[in-house]
Design a protein around this nucleic acid. Structure first.
Lengths: 131, 131
DNA sequence: AACATATATTTAGTTAGCTAAGTAATTTGG
DNA sequence: CCAAATTACTTAGCTAACTAAATATATGTT
């Protein structure tokens, strides 16, 4: 296997684990946070908007959203089209959001500590060229 | 979520899926290929050597190795230390290996087509700085 | 109006990572 | 020499991704 791809896979596993550790005190997992984060950013979203935004398949989002609703992080309602579901953050989530976001920022700064701002941008641009 | 980390996660999912599509005709999955690849490289390995090399946890390798043995890709024997298991490629795997490797090389060249050799190296080095 | 097609979500089943906890064999220290 | 610690691997249960196929609603065509 190409060492570049191998390295990317390794870093993914490492980062995902670090995110999970960071979120553990809030009883959240990495993928749950991804969903909360993008809902917060867009205020409210349909399931389809979420999975298209995050680039995962629909069933993955169905399950994560249901779990998040069970746990009280989000509220699900139906739009005028009775097929679609609209999702937004609960009061509890809105309150907790800034604290969790802060913890995540600390984690991000920590793992990206070895890179300058220029290198971060460069890494981002190089990653985008992989396709 | 930091856009850089978000992008890395997205590329991971994309690449893993592409690897799985590439390997589908051989009835293999990405992680199974990782294991076969590193066994081939080292000729034979214990389970511990495999999970340390691939940077995953032991139970992951136990399961993948057992599945690969079931599927006839590898053979498991025991070394002089009765705790450890030694794993090597089967005849079938040795025969198929070059063909699969070729398909993987084509895939790697395709997804890295947008990067020059210098950029590839740079991306690799920048990824290593994430920790 | 009826039927086909498209869209939104769900269900079922698979691989693959993790942690926690367990068994069995080996090594080590008093 | 034997109890304690370590090592190698396994089992069980969780999250998280995927695919394939089902269900329900909406839309479009004849």
């Amino acid at each position: 296997m190409n060492p570049l791809i191998h390295e990317l896979f390794q870093k993914y596993r490492f980062l995902k684990q670090e995110v999970n550790h960071t979120l553990k005190e809030f009883n959240l997992f990495a993928s749950q946070w991804s969903v909360l984060y993008c809902i917060q950013k867009h205020n409210e979203m349909t399931l389809t908007q979420i999975w298209k935004y995050l680039n995962v398949e629909a069933p993955t989002i169905t399950r994560t959203v249901n779990r998040l609703a069970e746990l009280g992080w989000i509220e699900i309602s139906s739009g005028k089209d009775r097929r679609e579901k609209i999702v937004k953050l609960s009061e509890h989530a809105l309150q907790q959001f800034p604290v969790i976001n802060e913890a995540m920022k600390e984690f991000e700064e920590r793992v990206l500590n070895g890179l300058s701002k220029e290198e971060e941008l460069l890494l981002f641009e190089l990653l985008q060229k992989v396709k």
